[in-house]
Simulated scan of single mutants.
Amino acid sequence: MESMRQRFDAGSGYLAACTLGLPADVTRDAVRRDLDRWAVGGASAPQYSAMLERARGHAAALLGVEPSRVATGSQVSVFTGLAAASAPRGAEIVCVDGDFSSVVAPFLARGDLRVRHVPLDALADAVTGDTWMVSYSLVQSATGEVADVASVTAAARDAGARVLVDTTQATGWMPTTDLEADLIVCHAYKWLSAPRGAAFAAFSDRALAELTPYAAGWYSGADPWASCYGPALFLADDASRFDVSPAWHAWAGAEAALGFAAALDMHDVRRHDLGLANAFRERLGAAASDSAIVTWADGDGADLAALTAAGITASGRAGRARVAFHVWNDDEDVDRAARALGR
């Protein structure tokens, strides 16, 4: 990972991949080319569609599925909303207490579903024969905790429950190619460092059969250019039936960002990121962890203020200070952040 920092215009002191990623040189250049092309009237819808399909392929590689399993969109909550809208009245949904709203709120908004919230370490045990879906983040946004995927998957499989897993805080720094889930949702603007407005989801056979594409539009057909007008409903046979019309300029950058990430060895990225995160935990006197996100209690915001004053970009969530280490960071960032906190 030593050569990675030069691929980013910034990086030193930037410990906020969990909030907003930094564009690599290829992503920056792709966005600039798109702006220049658009400015002179050279942009076209077919060009953007081709970009989107290449990006779909990269997303599929990052999730370990075929491109036909992947739908593209703009927000995680929209994909979660499709699952919530498709659930039977009164269905039980099991969520993690304090999980990110995008994998919780759509179920609550239905008003006629039974939504239970349990601690992350109790998630697998909370699944019963009455559970219709388990919805959780692989890596928790507020705490950085990593879920025990194997136990949750096994419990859901034994109970016949469906599984929705959000990998927004995971894909990009750790491998996410072996997840058994009916719906895997991810936004690409954090660890994948794409422009905001590019999200994707992977659908299992069960999800393809059971979920309804309530957000269907012209881009939900097998050939979007042949499904621009009614009165017929045009739906693709594969996961692209869940596509929404793409935010073109976001996907111009996302194609490059996802391609950049897909070409990396995620095992190497995880080793690098965890090495830095655990070195920082050691300076704090905390135990090692399996997460690239480091959080600690900071109720008055004093530690976040100290990091900011030292020129470090960090964040605070749910009464905790939060830093994240990624490919553009190195040992100097660990030392700089620790010294800012008097460690």
Rank of each mutant, 00 (worst) to 15 (best):
M4L: 11
A10P: 00
R37S: 00
Y48C: 05
Y48Q: 07
L52E: 11
L52Q: 10
R56L: 12
V65E: 14
Q75G: 04
Q75F: 12
V76G: 06
S77K: 01
T80K: 01
A84F: 12
D97K: 14
F100L: 11
L120S: 06
L120C: 09
A122N: 03
T131H: 05
M133H: 05
L138D: 00
G160P: 10
V163I: 14
V163D: 06
A170E: 11
A170I: 11
W173S: 02
D178M: 10
V185K: 05
H187C: 12
H187V: 06
K190G: 02
L192Q: 12
L192K: 07
R196P: 00
G197L: 10
G197H: 10
A202N: 09
R206Y: 00
L208P: 07
A209N: 08
T212D: 03
S220Y: 01
A222L: 15
P224D: 12
A236T: 05
H249E: 01
L258I: 09
A263W: 06
M266Q: 12
R270E: 10
L274W: 03
R283C: 08
L284M: 15
A287S: 08
D300T: 07
D303H: 06
L304M: 08
A306D: 10
A309W: 12
A310K: 01
T313N: 07
R320F: 05
R322P: 14
V327R: 08
R336L: 13
G342D: 12
